[in-house]
Amino acid sequence: MPEMTYREALRAGMAEEMERDEKVLLMGEDIGVYGGTHLITDGFLDRFGKKRVIDTPIAEGGFTGAAIGMAMLGLKPVVEMMTWNFSFLAADQIIQNAAKVRYFSGGQVEVPLVIRGPNGGGVQLSAQHTHSLENMYGHFPGLKVVSPVTPNDAKGMMLTAIRDPNPVIFLEAGALYGTKGEVPDGDNAVEFGKARVAREGTDVTLISYGRQVNLCVRVAEKLEEEDGVSAEVIDLRSLRPFDSETIVESVKKTHRAVAVQEQWRWFGVASEVASIIQEQAFDYLDAPVIRVSGAEVPAPYARNLELAAFPSEEAVAQAARQVLYQEVSA
């Protein structure tokens, strides 16, 4: 199977849909002439022309709102948020218009819109440029929220996102743009609302999404090696719609769960995971569900502080050992 980077996979997904459907167009800051801050759209301007690859001024609310309007008339805009941190400036448009206009119009309009860009931290961008916004956008009915971590899912979920007639918040693992993975040729569309079992196991379930999935896989390998523990890793991939079933089935098998997220603990996705497990698999649990989250501080700059602010292999391994009632170092 051919290998490509996460970046190339995103690019392939968008380019293939643009070739297939003339209603698909791209908008964002520096996506055209510059080629995209993260070079996701490099070459698109030459290939598709300025009518379909629109360089915008730095006005997230304005261009996101315009994209919503285009979508309401049947175009399929894919908007690049240079980083999701800038989406606060467009939050009124995303939340008040994109998410709700279908409902308050009594179903008279659709908003086939994708907003994509890098989410989360890990590259020393400090406080204002480091956020994980899946819980914020996942809060609002009317939006779909996805967070692929493999190149295969990056492409496959991009195809699905563009074809979806609803607004999709597409949270990319920005720190992983250069990572490689296998992506089959052709249409590999990945259905939303289906979690992926990233690694099978029997003793404990590690539930995550985005780049923390890779961390969990590394921890699972370590647990196997050091403790002889078999950990299952679930990649949620899609946060709205949410796949409760895969988690619950896994916990019924392992009886123990750790939910890992980069974002802050309070009011986050991991809390939702823990709640679903206690509601739907309470009798199967042998230990309370533990959440591993980012530190409750704005993201710091210094490398050592940043590393301390995000979930670490040690923290996840420790949480796994805790739910397994193994000895935990202090």
Binding site: G65, A66, G69, D92
Partner: peptide, 30 residues
């Protein structure tokens, strides 16, 4: 709303609908 009649809505957040209309106009020429 009455989309069949060309009416794309009334909106409740002051200013929030203006970008949408600009998007409609782009789509009309697109």
């Amino acid at each position: 709303f009455d989309v069949e009649k060309g009416f794309m809505g009334g909106y409740g957040i002051v200013g929030g609908h203006i970008p949408l209309g600009v998007g409609f106009a782009y789509a009309q020429r697109y």
